[in-house]
């Protein structure tokens, strides 16, 4: 979501807000006694790895698309 934000300050604010929410929700689970601390740490680890996996896949597809469009510009179709 932040990729389209031009202002670095706004981007940093969105990231900071997201991190605060993530940490606060985790702490609330511990505070309310509905999860153990190790459950929360495990959840963070799983979420981090999954989000990175999806982001990496997106990056690979995006770069492949960019390469494809560059190749199409470099080699115009035969008449």
């Amino acid at each position: 979501m932040t990729a389209r934000l031009r202002s670095p300050l706004l981007r940093a604010l969105v990231w900071a807000g997201a991190i605060v929410i993530i940490v606060a929700v985790g702490f609330s689970r511990l505070y309310l006694g509905v999860h153990y601390a190790s459950d929360i740490v495990g959840g963070y680890a799983t979420g981090f790895v999954w989000v990175l996996t999806v982001a990496s896949a997106d990056r690979v597809f995006r770069r492949a698309d960019e390469r494809g469009s560059k190749a199409a510009v470099a080699e115009p179709p035969p008449r």
Binding site: S38, V41, G42, A45, V49, L52, S56, V60
Partner: peptide, 25 residues
């Protein structure tokens, strides 16, 4: 090369976190 240096570092972090998750599990 495909992912760029930032994502490369991210993937390395993901590998480390996965190993730590295995230990925690």
């Amino acid at each position: 090369d495909r992912l760029g240096p930032r994502m490369g570092v991210g993937l390395l972090a993901a590998v480390i976190v996965t190993v730590l998750f295995g230990v925690l599990a």
